[in-house]
Amino acid sequence: MGEAASVETKSLAKTLVSAVPGLGLVIIATACAYALATLLHLPSVIVALIVGMALHPLLTRISVIGPGVFFAADPLMRIGVACLGAGVNAALLLTLGWPIFATLSLAISATILCGLVVGKWLGQSRRFSVLSAGAVAICGASAALAISCALPKTDEENGDVSVVIVAVSLLSAAGILLYPLLTSALALSDASAGFVLGGSLHNVAQAIAAGFSVSDPAGEMATLVKMSRVAMLAPIVMLVALTFRRTGESEGGARRLALPPIFLLGFLALMGASSANLIPQSVETGLGYVSKACLLLAMTAIGLRTPIMDMVRLDRRAIVLLLLETVTILLVVLIAVQFIPI
């Protein structure tokens, strides 16, 4: 037993040492991307992805950086997704009431169904359809990264994730400007406007920003509604993981036991601890920073693993699918807000 543990420890140490060069490159590139995004007031995930893709030739020519890039794009990303759970307080979200949760469940289900049905009609892979629909339905880039962890590995995985993240980030950024104007044109109350913005915009930051651009009450409602969608990340990722593994679509084409991913269990554990007020505010804040840092590093690493020509040869049907998914969740929320008490 002791010898086996010693061998595993040495193997882990060797793996971590081999990851140092590539991880160092990813950290430096991410820091530069974050500074550039801050300076230009651009979404940091998109800038990190572009910087990573610009550095892709290094990955093909310098083999020593490969292990570190893989570490940032996979294990580190899973850590970031797990830490997201610390920011979700289910007890607070329950104050919204069952009509809102029922509406959000319907909107998410309709969006995912749209992705699967329309994606098949447009000739998109089931993997891409699930990835895009989940990102639109839940929380944009973070959901795309989380769902990608639960999907089987393929040669196209990095290109799929890159396309989805760029598209949902741009759509969400446009929504900051357009959606508040829409809620104003429909003469919605602050609470209703916050519900629409939190219930339809993709990325968390954009949904909250759009809500507070209307009013403080709208911003508070948008925050609660958006975090309710984030809380639904766990069951969606669980369902995706179990579905793909049950159908035998896993690494190497081999059938695997349908078990929940470990990072998802970490997400649920932290969400439960946060809901029970077991996590001090300072620790919760720290875990939030860890999550953002890990996911941003993962974005740079995914960019490094994505040839820039994959983005140049972008399939227009993929964009059409993402647009239709975006319209679906917006329409469901807009219709529902006319009937549910808020």
Rank of each mutant, 00 (worst) to 15 (best):
V168S: 08
L106W: 03
Q206D: 01
C294S: 12
M311N: 15
Q206W: 02
R317V: 11
G253A: 07
G123R: 04
L201T: 00
A144I: 08
T154C: 04
N158T: 14
L93E: 02
I262F: 11
W98M: 14
P180D: 04
G194C: 10
Q338N: 14
V230T: 01
R313A: 13
L106N: 09
G68C: 03
G68M: 03
L268T: 02
A137S: 10
L287Y: 01
A144K: 01
R245K: 15
F70C: 06
V290D: 00
L297R: 07
L322H: 11
C149A: 13
G115V: 09
E325Q: 01
L55H: 08
L295W: 10
M238L: 15
V283F: 07
P260Y: 02
L177S: 11
V20L: 13
A146H: 11
T306Q: 09
V332D: 03
G266Y: 08
S11R: 14
G134H: 00
A301R: 03
V168G: 01
G123W: 03
D315T: 13
A218E: 08
L106F: 09
P261Y: 07
A73C: 13
I279G: 10
C83D: 10
L197H: 13
G52I: 14
A31N: 04
C149M: 14
Y34A: 15
A72C: 15
I112T: 07
I208V: 15
V230N: 10
I236V: 15
G97H: 04
M309V: 14
L16H: 05
V7E: 11
F101I: 04
I100N: 06
A187P: 12
M238A: 15
A33K: 06
S200T: 11
I50C: 13
M299E: 09
S132L: 07
T154A: 01
L264V: 05
V88A: 11
I165K: 10
A54Q: 05
F128N: 04
A205R: 02
G123Q: 01
G219Y: 00
G87P: 00
F212D: 00
S142N: 12
I46T: 04
G219V: 04
I302A: 02
L287N: 08
T9E: 15
A91P: 00
S129A: 09
V312Q: 08
W98T: 07
A269S: 00
D160C: 03
K153A: 05
I147C: 04
L186K: 08
W98F: 06
I100G: 01
A336P: 00
G22C: 11
A135P: 00
S105P: 05
P67N: 00
A174R: 03
I108L: 14
N277W: 14
I236G: 08
S213P: 00
G198C: 02
G194N: 05
V225T: 00
V117K: 08
I262M: 13
L49D: 06
P67A: 10
L331S: 12
L242E: 12
L322D: 07
